[in-house]
Design a protein around this nucleic acid. Structure first.
Lengths: 153, 153
DNA sequence: ACTGAAATGGCGCGACC
DNA sequence: GGTCGCGCCATTTCAGT
């Protein structure tokens, strides 16, 4: 793990907001020479602090107007079903987030679909087909209050 | 809303994976001239299909080793508390996601903190201080199975 | 209207203090 | 960490379809 100073935090903050800004502008913003900055950014990438530079695509603009959080419980008695579940979730394009959690539910998913019908198809045709899945509880997202929030504020 | 063709989808797919790739390389990858591609990307930005170009920062690398999903229920009788809740959540840097949902919980949050102690401080010093909050249920994230998944697969 | 070729000013990236 | 410089690339313009 890498030791980060205040300057690194400023760099990360700015890159989270707009990673397409020019290296030169960023250097200006943090009062550094372009190449010194460039080396820092490189170091942050290589240390795995920055995992990716990705464009955020708005789901609705892609026709994905239905969104839900799903709590999943697995059956207790089948360890081989767990890896199958993980692999299936990782592969399925509807699932955009998945966490193993403490509490009532074993797993929490965020799922995107074009509409309610497609989501039902996701449940019946995919999630409920998985052997390890004991139950699933859907929370339809009514409104996205906050998302894509910078980790470094 | 904009009409997207197959080429747009390929552009978006690639930009989601690496939005720092050069315009020239991207043009090659989708078999277009650099200027035609550049105009398309511009159009996607202006149509709001691409909301941001952001570096993904790994929370753990920033010392944020504790992560939780929190289900919040608000009191039924105070509409003015709702806006206060929303504003507080939007402002608080620990909260990186927030959704209004159907189901047992009114709101779902994803919260980052340095450690369990800091999270307890988040609950006592922030969340439970909000007048509208009736109850909160924490699901500690044990493992991130999937995240930052492209919307366009 | 939409395309791509060309021109240029700026920038990324590396070599070297 | 900064300076310098080469070569490449983003961005605009312009002519062709």
């Amino acid at each position: 793990m890498m030791q980060l100073d205040e300057r690194d935090r400023r760099i990360l903050k700015l890159l989270q907001e707009d990673c397409r800004m020019s290296n030169a502008d960023l250097a200006d913003a943090v009062s550094m020479s372009a190449s010194a900055l460039w080396r820092r950014v490189r170091a942050l990438e290589e240390a795995g602090v920055i995992s990716r530079y990705g464009a955020r695509v708005v789901p609705k603009a892609m026709g994905l107007k239905f969104e839900a959080l799903v709590q999943v419980n697995l059956t207790r008695h089948a360890p081989e079903h767990l890896t199958e579940f993980i692999r299936a979730v990782e592969t399925n394009p509807h699932v955009v987030e998945c966490y193993a959690t403490t509490g009532q539910a074993d797993y929490h998913l965020r799922v995107l679909a074009p509409d309610l019908e497609a989501y039902n198809q996701f449940l019946e045709g995919f999630l409920f087909q998985l052997a390890g899945v004991a139950s699933a509880q859907t929370h339809v997202i009514l409104k996205t209050v906050k998302r894509d929030t910078p980790v470094v504020p």
